[in-house]
Design a protein around this nucleic acid. Sequence first.
DNA 1: GCAACTAAACTGGTAAACCAATTTTTGAGA
DNA 2: TCTCAAAAATTGGTTTACCAGTTTAGTTGC
Lengths: 235, 235
Amino acid sequence: MKVGGVLSKNDNEEIHNKIIVQIAELINLKNLEPGDKLPSERMLSEKLDVSRSAVREAINKLEYYGLLKSIPQSGTFVANIGVTAMNGMVEYILGLGDPDFKSLVETRILLELKIVKLASLRRTTEDLVNIKNALEAYEEKVLNGEDAVQEDLLFHLAIANTCGNSTLNGFMLKITPEIITNFKKYHVCGDELSVVAIKEHKQIYEAIKNQETQKAREIMKVHFKTLYQYCYNIK
Amino acid sequence: MKVGGVLSKNDNEEIHNKIIVQIAELINLKNLEPGDKLPSERMLSEKLDVSRSAVREAINKLEYYGLLKSIPQSGTFVANIGVTAMNGMVEYILGLGDPDFKSLVETRILLELKIVKLASLRRTTEDLVNIKNALEAYEEKVLNGEDAVQEDLLFHLAIANTCGNSTLNGFMLKITPEIITNFKKYHVCGDELSVVAIKEHKQIYEAIKNQETQKAREIMKVHFKTLYQYCYNIK
DNA sequence: GCAACTAAACTGGTAAACCAATTTTTGAGA
DNA sequence: TCTCAAAAATTGGTTTACCAGTTTAGTTGC
């Protein structure tokens, strides 16, 4: 029986992971296949000797990764994925560490180079207005000598929101705040950078507007080049 | 006051979104800045006239996107991101729709072409063993005429787990099950495809092993080409 | 007047009780 | 024996009550 008390986030996650493993083991033991029903949350919490809330959180995480599916007043079911895949995925999920700054930047550049291409292909006139607004807000802040990290971010997110790919857009929303936080921590993005960035932002906007796909990508690449250097200098 | 009863997932999400908007409005109204403390969950639930659980779920979502930070026995705080960025992000987050199959495939290909490059650069001998095991499991299933979608998936996840970028790896884990589900729904991945895929998997493995970065990417590209065609035929 | 200690109030997290929809069981009627 | 409706049991979701740290206010001693 758990003795109670508040645990650190780390310990807490370990407990969740432990429950996830036990749920996976149970599915293996009972040879449950896609669509089969898991024992109820109450039974699981009793069998695993943890609180029902803890079980629910573990199920939530597995649901996030598409391995389980909860249906109200009915039960929790194995998703349309076999046990082999599930076992492999659980292992990888548990091994997943917190992303480091390098991973984040590497990923951001990958995503944005694709996004800017898609955006230039798929942008509507309404999208262009949004991007331009973000562009001008950034410019104004920089020229006033104010910190413009937020406006910079919003310019890039406006493009992501234009790319017509909700998965990519969602991923951008996920990683952007973490990158910003790191930027502030490491004092990336100085003033001299910002002035150069205005010009590049304008070029990107024009390329998207004119649907010059390849050019848009090239300028974005240049835009990130300085960033890259900063990051590796920091490291 | 809520009248009670079970709501559809759609209605439920709308309620969460509504609360998210109200929390954002409150932060604006009170001019809260990064690091400032939000009203307690109890006060929020009272002020917004919703249950505390609903407030907690909204906060969780905002925390997932890096906009808030909850600290046990202390409070919920505005993350290290200004209100401007927060307002923009909230708007984009709420506008984020469920990903369609096309978005998923488009994203998967982008991720995997990068991942296979990184994997070939960073793979350890231990990684190679894992990939090879996944490769052989896939081959065995296919040659036995059995369905091998799971093993195919695990081969690709083994590579993702090798790429040394936890953000990319996590994104792969997130989208892969959804893709599999769609594959099954649309009956992609026939038997004749699988036999071809074995050869390509072997080539990818060899390229990663020999650290032939560009070659690995090229083969992966070919590997996805058939998939692409299938998808657009379906559409 | 101020530093230091104490206690009361407050906080996010967790366990327990409750709810309504669903599923299963039951039994009456044909 | 079969059918079908009614009721009991079961389910995930929600509300409520409680917990142990944290923070703040108050008080004591100097």
